[in-house]
Design a protein around this nucleic acid. Sequence first.
DNA 1: AAAAACTGCAACCGCCAGATA
DNA 2: CTATCTGGCGGTTGCAGTTTT
Length: 334
Amino acid sequence: MGRHSCCVKQKLRKGLWSPEEDEKLLKYITRFGVGCWSSVPKHAGLQRCGKSCRLRWINYLRPDLKRGMFSQQEEDLILNLHQVLGNRWAQIAAQLPGRTDNEIKNFWNSCLKKKLMKQGIDPNTHKPITDNNDVKDKKIEFFDKKSEFFPCSSSSMPMGGAELEQAFHVNNGGLILSSSSSMETGSFLTKSVCDPLFLVEFQSDIDPITYNSNLLSQYQQTGYDTSLPNLASFSDHSGSKMNTSSFIMNEARESSSTTNSSQMNNSLSAGFQQMTFEGEMFQFNGINVKSEEGCIGQWEQQNMHEVQVNNASDFNIYPMGSLSGEYTDVFHQI
DNA sequence: AAAAACTGCAACCGCCAGATA
DNA sequence: CTATCTGGCGGTTGCAGTTTT
């Protein structure tokens, strides 16, 4: 162990990067691309170690970086992901295109952490600092069905049952889940996904330059439907398009592939409209999920947790196992 | 106006794991 | 198998700018 060999060399500059250094590095990477970082300083004419060059590129010079303040949506996502992942900044950053792990880490330490503490929430556990009973009271029947969510023994999970419950628990004052009697008959995931981190971790090897997930092929091989859903045309049965989200999706789907529409109509809840899902992606408490094509559902515009979806190009497409069964949740279209 | 305290953030440090010799 | 190299990660530091006293 010890210092990298590149850092041991003498006469290496440290501290803030000058505009001239930035220009040299930018020119080099633009021309030759990202390769062996240890050779970059030499070829780019920089008196920095390779590590320093890599960091400067990733955190500052990379052209696809998003600058400026974090949006409310990004903030919520960071909070939810941190609840699941803890201080795994790189994995959290993988879910926020254009943001770096360093940026998120700084944002967390300087802002979000304090915000949570002001709200009386322990930033490490995401639980109220004073009274644990509060948390218990809010636990809902849904979590009693966690074996249906993750059809494997809890011992094989990297997180324990309590942690899993907490991971899916509400934070930020928003209600995410509501129990449904129909839950009892359905299973959340038809494919076995034992690792609750899987849903996020599968993104961890995204190309940092292009953010193109290379996992689609992996899922194609295992029989997942990786076709990109038509997120822009979120049509209901009246033919009208819907491109704002944050709604309660009261999805009820037959276990067989043939859905009985009349049956669906009969059970239409008051205030809900019926729609057909076409493989849309949603965000569920910071986790990305995808509805199966052709499933019939009901939706209702919801005021709380309002999330504005701009246009289709803003959506992220993540491969994911399909859903089946019946459930009632608040989802955010992403 | 000046000093002290605070804040945000870029960059460094040390460790780890995988690849390679 | 062992040693070394390298990239990646999370924790931490230190600087510069801002706010408070």
